[in-house]
Design a protein around this nucleic acid. Sequence first.
RNA 1: GGCCCCAUAGUCUAGCGGUUAGGACGUCUGCCUCUCACGCAGAAAACUCGAGUUCAAGUCUCGAUGGGGUCACCA
Length: 492
Amino acid sequence: MTERPVRVRIAPSPTGDPHVGTAYVALFNYVFAKSQGGTFVLRIEDTDQTRARRDSEQMIFDALHWCGLTWDEGPDVGGPFGPYRQSERTAHYREHAAILVAKGEAYPCFCTEDRLAKARAQAQAEKRAHIGYDRLCRAIEPAVAAARAATEPHTIRLKMPLTGKIIVRDQLRAKPIEIDAAEVDDQVLLKSDGFPTYHLANVVDDHLMEITHVIRAEEWITSTPKHVMLYKAFGWEEPRFYHLGLLRNSDKSKISKRKNPVSINYYRDCGYLPTALLNFLGNMGWSFGNDTEKFTLAQMIEVFTWDRSSLNGPVFDLVKLGSLNEKYIQELTPLQLADALITWRFSREQLARVAPLVQKRMKKLDDAFGKIDFVYAGDLDYKPVLAEMAVPEVAPADVAAALLAFVERFETREGFTVAMLEEESTAWLAGLGWQKKHAFMLLRLAISGRTTSPDLFPTMEVLGKEITRRRMREAARALLAPPPPAPKPPKA
RNA sequence: GGCCCCAUAGUCUAGCGGUUAGGACGUCUGCCUCUCACGCAGAAAACUCGAGUUCAAGUCUCGAUGGGGUCACCA
C-alpha cells in the first residue's frame, strides 16, 4: 500500500440526537489524524430520505464542537473535496453505479420490496442459514435489463462472487478476517429513489475524498466485505480499516437510549465538562499507559498509538465518568468555575428561559431559586415522593409503564416544544383513562421531584428532551425498585 | 439460527512466557472534622473452562463456554 497523507473522516447520519458513539469514534479519528499530521473530515451521511431530520445536522456540529473537536473539512467549513453532504453528491453515486453496471459488476434489480419481504420471511420461517436476496434479477440479460431499467423502477445491486473467500484486513486484529463470499448478499447500491445506500456512498466518497484510514465502530465489521468487494469492482485501492469496540450499556448490549443516556446533549445539560467527557471516552478501549487516566486531548495526541487500544466493548459507566468529571471541576479556578456555570445554565439567555417559569410566584427576587432548583439538579431522588406518585387502583408497574409510554411518545417527534408535549400528553392521557390530575401529578413528580412546580410543559421544554427523558426513566425505575430493607435496629 | 468479533475484580484498564497479577472508579473499615463532602490510611475483590506447546502460560495454539455484533431499497 502506498503511503499517502493521512485523511480520516467521521460520517454521522443526521437522524436524531448527536450520539456519544459519534463523539467516541470522532475522538479516535481526530486524535489519530492529529498524531499523524493528517486531516480530519466531517461528512454528513443524509442519504436516507425517510429518516433524515432537518435539525439534526446542526446539533451534530454543535455537540462535537462542544466536546472540543474540530474538523478540517466539512459541510460548514468547506474544503477541496466538497460537497460534504451526501445528499448533494447524488450525481457521483449514480455515475459510479452506472460504471459498475457497464463493467458487469452490478445489475438492475426490479424486485419489489413486497417480494423481498416475503422471500425473507419465508427463508426465516424455513430457518434457512442464508436469508439474503435470492439473486433473481441477476439472471436477466444485460440488454433486457437495461431496456427495462429505462422505464421500470429498480435498484442497482452489486454482483458478489458466488464462491471463494473475501479477506478483510483490520489493523486492530492480528488475523485477517475471512468470509465466504457466498455468505454476502448482492447488496443494493442505489435505491429506487435514486439515492445511494450507505455502502455505495461510503466507498465512493471515501475514495473521492482520498480517505486513507477508515476508523469506525465494530458494528460495521460484517459489512466490510461488501466494501472490500466494491473497492475491487471499481479497481480502487482500499483504505485501512480499524473497527473500534462498541460502547455498551451496563448489561453489555450495544449502548442505547432505552438503557442509557446517549445524547451528547444530555451530558452537556447534566453538567459534565466537555474535557472530562472526552477524557472519559479516551479511556474506553484505549489506555494512555503508565497508569495514567487523566489526560488532555493534546496529551492523547502526543502519545497516541493503536497498540494501546483494546477490543472489549467497554461499558459506559456514568459513575466513573462522574468521578473523572469531579476531578476536572476541582481544579477549576474560581473564575473558571463561574464561567463554566454561566456557560452551562446561568447565561442571560438561559436564565431568561428558566426564571419566567416561576415569575408569577415571585414576590421578591429571592423567591426564585427555591422554586426552580430542580432545574439545576441532575438526577432527582424519588424515594421521598414515591407515595405521591401512586395512582389510585393502578399497580406501580403500570404507573412506571405509563411514564415510559410518555417517553416513547416524544421520542420520535422532531423538536421538543410545549405544543408538541400538549398534543402528545392528550393522546397519552386518553389511552390511559386515568384522572387528569393523577396523570399530570405523576409527570410533575417525575420531572421536578416535587408536588408543586411551575407549569408542566413549559418546564419540560426548558429542561429539554434529554433531561426529561432521563428523569422519567429514573422515576419509572424508582417505582419498580423493591422497597428498601427495614432500617437496622439501633445498637444496644 | 448462519456468519463475524471479543474474553484480567461489579466497571474501565495495565500486563506483551518467569510479577506477592499493577492502577482507577465503585464497595467496605478506620482517621480527620462544627454537618456533609473532600482528604488520608487500610481492606475485600479478577486472569471463563479444557486440552496442547514450553523447564515455565493471564500472556502462544486449538476447542468449548459466555458475551456482543450483524444478517434492510437504515446508517
